[in-house]
Design a protein around this nucleic acid. Sequence first.
DNA 1: GAGTAAAGTGAGCGAATGCTCGCCTTCTAC
DNA 2: GTAGAAGGCGAGCATTCGCTCACTTTACTC
Lengths: 213, 213
Amino acid sequence: MSSVRPNRRREPQQDRSRRTVERIVDAAARVLERDGYRAASTNRIAAEAGVSPGSLYQYFGDRDALLEAVTARFVARFEEQLVPALRRAVREDQVAATTSVIDAVLAALEQQAPLLRALVARIPPERQAELTRAIRERVTDYVFGTLARQHVELSPDALDRLTWVVVELAQSLPLRYVVDAPPIPREAFVADVARLVLAHVAGVVADEGAIAS
Amino acid sequence: MSSVRPNRRREPQQDRSRRTVERIVDAAARVLERDGYRAASTNRIAAEAGVSPGSLYQYFGDRDALLEAVTARFVARFEEQLVPALRRAVREDQVAATTSVIDAVLAALEQQAPLLRALVARIPPERQAELTRAIRERVTDYVFGTLARQHVELSPDALDRLTWVVVELAQSLPLRYVVDAPPIPREAFVADVARLVLAHVAGVVADEGAIAS
DNA sequence: GAGTAAAGTGAGCGAATGCTCGCCTTCTAC
DNA sequence: GTAGAAGGCGAGCATTCGCTCACTTTACTC
């Protein structure tokens, strides 16, 4: 139904134009943070970037493509910071690794807290789901892989069930923590979430063992 | 900063007009579900309701006031269904009560699943935060009260910390469950969340006890 | 059934927005 | 130095949308 919409209308070839694209995405993020989604019109973003509307449309097919680029960059930066931490965590024991991962997710979200708040609370449209989905995919792959390795005895169904809840714990809770900023010390929160994850894994493993025997 | 914006421009006095208001809110919810936020223009909603734009503006000050009425009705219906269940849960023991509450929250959300999905995923604007905040407030009051009664030994700080996480577990997880519809049997999910809540409460209580002694 | 208030109508205004296009400027290759 | 491509410009077009207002219809009161 929806025709193929190119995110980019033209691929920048000179440094000059690459900088222009950066400036536009920067400006879009800034306007989104400051003034919200409604006010983030293409003309306004172009003005904020010090660029003409025509230039904007040389690189972005339409308004949505531009806003999508903002969330894409958010996700890229999130991943960029998270992946090394995940790699490091592999060498730790289960308890330490769990804590490290929670901490890393939280840190990666905190890095871009203002934009995150804007994206979550100031409501981009049909595309907001894409943001959380994109973040979740990254974490899901890792969590599923780790759990599958550590608990080869679990059935695929149990693994799915386990993974979904663990990802929610390891991702939704930190996300809400950053957005809401509740009066809970950071370390206490990380410890709480890590304990929840470990308790849940142990619980489901015990359940499955009870069924199997 | 924001001037006082009356949600209602005129209070309906005849049955006829009360029905009109209902039809408008119904239509708004329907368009939101079917076509998303962008397409939910006032003219479109009026047409869907079989009503003229003028009539719409007799009862709603502006577009946002109308969309706010949609989420307000969602929250009202949610509460309407949840409160009796909470009252019933008071008479049960801790484990049963926890399970009952999780189940009740889930059921109340499932009741309006399509609209919930639209409100969460199809992104109303700066007001989406209000939806989750409104829901959360209802649950928070209950959770805080219950925990305070059961654990008088806890410090106010510990209670806050406990309440925030428990509310996230009891509300965010079910909400995501309804929106995402993951491949997890309902009863297993409810049991998992209940166990998580109980484990977390026990954990924090143990922590505090260790500090106090 | 006359008078009045409430409810409802819908053509259309003013403003804003997304986006275009003809034109100019800068860069690159030779 | 120059041709041609890439990049940039911005006035303005087409469209849409929120909202109004002069008017009609319906309901209530006595």
